[in-house]
Design a protein around this nucleic acid. Structure first.
Lengths: 337, 337
DNA sequence: CTGTTAGCGCATTCAA
DNA sequence: TTGAATGCGCTAACAG
């Protein structure tokens, strides 16, 4: 950090005013003689000068940083959303600050405040709260926001999410076709997450009026890769006592893997009387015996789209909102159901 | 962003000078009357005042931000390192800026420059280059740095890494015990990564002087979850022609899963004539039939330790260096080898 | 086409 | 025990 060189140094050496250097730095070449431009450029390159971003942000009132809150950064699905975001942003001026809420609403709240303190120009949020009203600290700013993966209602910010309803509906149809008498849904609390709600609705929509029974087991939020909470599996074991022909539908990868493990451990063959299916965050379903039929989302694409929408908002101001932007997911049909 | 309140506002309302407010904010209470302190405190809380971080950083020459570069943020192993880092940092003043090098050295270089521009107080790096000399832009600063997962030599910065040598050596011993005639190592280029080198060395150390042959297949860097590059598997198929009793040792999760998939697809039963083992980034080995014997690292712990060491450096200045700090990994013995 | 001037919000001398 | 003055590095009127 040897006495970083500043705009003043450049100005002095190039024998121009710092205003002119500033103009140069910001690409405002209109009405600047080619000669001075080249002169400044030479000095800048020579000294490998890099403007101080804090100073710029302080003065200019924009920071070129995008804030991001995710529910849990160690979740492989989330980390692929981040990949998409960062990849899309790499060719721009924007930096990101990523904060992990660790599935905790209080922390999410703190994180948002921290990000706002950071004078971010835009926010990408995977919301944890139940309603947009819970985000008063954002609402009272005019900050451009886009939601990813989940969204809160009323829909005041754009949202980019998987096509949960459709895909779960298709799956519901498949379950019906396969003559299951019952489906057991494994999900963390639905009230807190729009995808879960929509997955449930899709399933319901496919099964309504038929004679397939739907039961849900509501689990805690899962942080592990394989859900091992004994209570969940005890409850499942209980339900399975009656030997009904049952499809188990896990709403996330950890529960899906947990279910597979449970069935393995209990030597319950699949797909026999019991079928298993679910959302596969790690995309490893094909390797897990007997081949897990699963829904594979496209988190990288979600990240891409979110950035596009956010930048558009930042540049052109608020846009029309017409419902969440769906990103296709894919049903990988394998053996387990 | 409705006209954010500043230190001036606080000063005015509390009828003190901004100097005093500044002192208050920085906890310099020595020789400040309790009365003014309480008065300022009241106003600050009342207005929910939050100091502008850019201005503070501009003036104070430190930013309270930690920069991080990872090779690939979507890698579940890396995302767990990040989890550890962020988790450890949450109780501190520090923020993080994470940049993804996407397995590309040029991008890593750019990222480091960007981070330095950001006036970071410290850097956590998962290095992609081959030597510390490749990091001239860091070396010429006095920036506190700690390496995670990998390290470059000569060792000029602390490094927190898995106990690669030991664990691979143990594995080598196991391979020898199981009477394999040959081990085929699946790895991306070793020159670029200290863990790979040390895993190889550990294996070698266990096998040297015995009569187990070691062959490596060097693959490209893998970005997918399951390595599907046909060239790799064609080469493996070729080697396997001779029906030698072979242990396949994959140096990362994607290759491990790729190998399992290859063997599945080709109906090669494991563990029979062929055994499989490897580093399991996703920690799903227990679910993959027939149960994959694998090495499970502890990336979260690596993150923790890295933060501890970095903060110590930031606060107390450079510390003695005595080799990389090892973090225990674990050999999960299952069926595949 | 370019420079002068005036801050942005804060921390830090130096005085009082 | 407190304040006035100064400047960090930059951008943006407003002149010229």
């Amino acid at each position: 950090m040897n006495k970083a060189i500043t705009i003043n140094d450049i100005a002095k050496i190039a024998t121009v005013s710092k205003t002119t250097v500033s103009r140069f730095l910001n690409g405002k070449f209109e009405g600047m003689s080619e000669e001075t431009r080249l002169r400044i450029q030479a000095v800048v390159e020579e000294l490998d000068y890099r403007p101080n971003r804090q100073a710029r942000a302080l003065k200019a009132k924009y920071s070129s940083v995008i804030g991001i809150t995710v529910t849990d950064i160690s979740n492989p699905y989330n980390s692929r959303i981040l990949k998409g975001i960062m990849d899309r942003l790499k060719s721009t001026e924007y930096r990101t600050i990523i904060l992990d809420s660790d599935l905790c609403k209080t922390r999410e709240h703190d994180n948002i405040e921290k990000l706002i303190d950071e004078q971010i120009d835009g926010l990408i949020i995977q919301p944890l709260a139940e309603s947009s009203h819970d985000y008063a600290e954002i609402l009272k700013t005019k900050l451009p926001v886009v939601q990813v993966d989940r969204f809160v209602e009323p829909l005041v910010w754009p949202a980019v999410v998987s096509d949960n309803f459709i895909q779960s509906k298709n799956l519901g149809l498949r379950i019906k076709d396969k003559d299951y008498e019952r489906v057991i849904v494994l999900t963390p609390p639905m009230s807190e997450s729009s995808p879960r709600k929509n997955r449930y609705k899709g399933l319901l929509n496919a099964l309504i009026g038929g004679n397939v029974e739907i039961i849900s087991i509501t689990t805690p939020e899962i942080r592990e890769i394989i859900a091992k909470d004994e209570k969940i599996w005890a409850e499942l074991r209980n339900l399975l006592q009656d030997k009904k022909r049952t499809a188990i539908f896990a709403f996330n990868g950890a529960l899906l893997y947990g279910a597979v493990k449970f069935l393995n451990d209990n030597l319950i063959a699949i797909p026999g009387n019991i079928g298993v299916v679910g959302y596969d965050d790690s995309a490893l379903g094909e390797l897990i015996s007997p081949g897990i039929t699963s829904i594979e989302q496209n988190p990288v694409e979600i990240g891409y789209r979110a950035v596009d929408i956010l930048l558009q908002q930042i540049i052109e101001g608020p846009q029309e909102l017409s419902g969440p932007v769906p990103v296709d997911s894919k049903l990988n049909i394998r053996k387990s159901l």
